[in-house]
Write a protein that binds this DNA or RNA. Sequence first.
DNA 1: TGTGAAACTATTCCGTT
DNA 2: AACGGAATAGTTTCACA
Lengths: 152, 152
Amino acid sequence: MDDRDRTILTLLQKDAQTPLAQISEAVSLSPSACSRRIQRLEEEGYIARRVAVLDRRLVKLPTTVFVLVRTSRHSGEWLEHFRKAVTAIPEIVEVHRLTGNVDYILKMVLPDVEHYDIVYKRLIGRLELFEMSAYISMETLKAGTEVPTSYA
Amino acid sequence: MDDRDRTILTLLQKDAQTPLAQISEAVSLSPSACSRRIQRLEEEGYIARRVAVLDRRLVKLPTTVFVLVRTSRHSGEWLEHFRKAVTAIPEIVEVHRLTGNVDYILKMVLPDVEHYDIVYKRLIGRLELFEMSAYISMETLKAGTEVPTSYA
DNA sequence: TGTGAAACTATTCCGTT
DNA sequence: AACGGAATAGTTTCACA
């Protein structure tokens, strides 16, 4: 993992289909050498996958809600049950187990704020006993899939 | 936007470089027709961009921290100042302005928990007056870039 | 690693429904 | 207006130095 690899990762994070010609220019290497490096970065797993990012407004999912969850149930079984429940609900796009007084954070992507109630009911229908506080995003100041490569 | 378009979007969200042959099979259409549809979905903006997703552990950024921010400053100027500050810090990957008693939520991607202090200091060095509560992710139960296409 | 040839995709054109 | 098939163009990969 050298500076060239990091530059390649930075470029591909911005645009996954950057032509080899452009990459090779950026790192002062031939297209074939770049191709081999990218292949290596994929095989070794640095590049997990390449995905299309959709326009949230156009696909009618403009609303983002974060939900902080507290529970009194802390068994491994409950956690697995919870994991299955959130995995099965497509509007829930991200879930983390946290330290501190909040147990979980959920990120939901919804057509509108009213739709939150549907997901809420689906969740409490499957899982017993917990408290949820919803925070509706009024404005996205920063978003993206890119992470700094300097640490790699 | 018909069922075929939605299927195409679903496939490309999972793998942005799904071969046309495979897509055309999935939607029972010729490769050329699929090519045109994808082109249209890009031109009309449904597909915002295609990006490479990196393995967070391998690029040495395994730690996720959510930060809830409260502030007493609520001017438009302060907001712009805040936006510039978080935009300039690459470890901060997502920022939303919220409703309710919490003003902002930040998502940070870090090499380790200790690194949080560095970002914390960088933030409070640029912005006056606010309160931050950090919640460290112990486990990611669900993550991804995919959103449901049924609403589109 | 770089160069050039080959293979593979994807795209465009055109005739058709 | 949209599709399928054939020709074209572009990109990636391979063989070899």
